[in-house]
């Protein structure tokens, strides 16, 4: 279980106007809408692959993963958050990236959040901002869900 009280900094981004956060420990970089090669016959949330300085990165449309309609390609605010986990980079497509904030631990809460149509395992907890609530994502769970083979050492 992902320990959210370890989080020091959180990157905030929006999907469908809801605010989400990822521990920056996982984040390699955040890019503007990079062009990528589409793949059609993988799982529906996999949009394609892209070349990131020589590495092939799988592009995941978080909107689709959260059961929302896929984003339009023209949205100028769309961003790609390159996440690093288990020696692999995956790019999350999000609607927009808001900010990177320092965490005050009292505002962290491990409550179970529900979001329509989304696997509750993806959420590790919440962070209370003054105006809004940030849903903290469990990156490991989101990425692990797809792996059918355990990595051979």
């Amino acid at each position: 279980m992902y320990e959210i009280n370890q989080i020091k900094e959180l990157a905030l981004f929006r999907i469908d106007n809801k605010l989400f956060g990822i521990d920056i420990v996982y984040i390699q970089e955040i890019n503007k809408n990079l062009s990528f090669t589409k793949i059609y016959d993988a799982q529906d949330y996999i949009k394609g692959v892209l070349n990131l300085r020589g590495q092939i990165v799988t592009v995941v449309d978080l909107r689709v993963k959260f059961n929302r309609k896929p984003a339009s390609d023209d949205d100028p605010n769309r961003r790609m958050i390159i996440v690093n986990y288990k020696d692999e980079s995956v790019g999350f497509l999000v609607d927009s990236v808001d900010d990177i904030i320092n965490i005050e631990s009292e505002k962290l809460e491990e409550s179970v959040t529900q979001m329509a149509g989304v696997n509750p395992d993806y959420f590790a907890g919440v962070y209370k901002l003054d105006s809004e609530i940030v849903i903290i994502l469990d990156v490991e769970k989101i990425l692990d869900n797809d792996e059918e083979y355990t990595a051979v050492a």
Binding site: T37, A42, Q43, V49, N51, V57, T58, L143, Y149, A151
Partner: peptide, 23 residues
């Protein structure tokens, strides 16, 4: 190599980078 999420794809095993930089 392709990422783990694409392991199930029957049609592709790996990827490359073309001269124009695209995958």
């Amino acid at each position: 190599p392709l990422g783990t999420h694409l392991r199930d794809c029957h049609a592709y095993a790996s990827a490359t980078i073309l001269g124009d930089g695209s995958a």
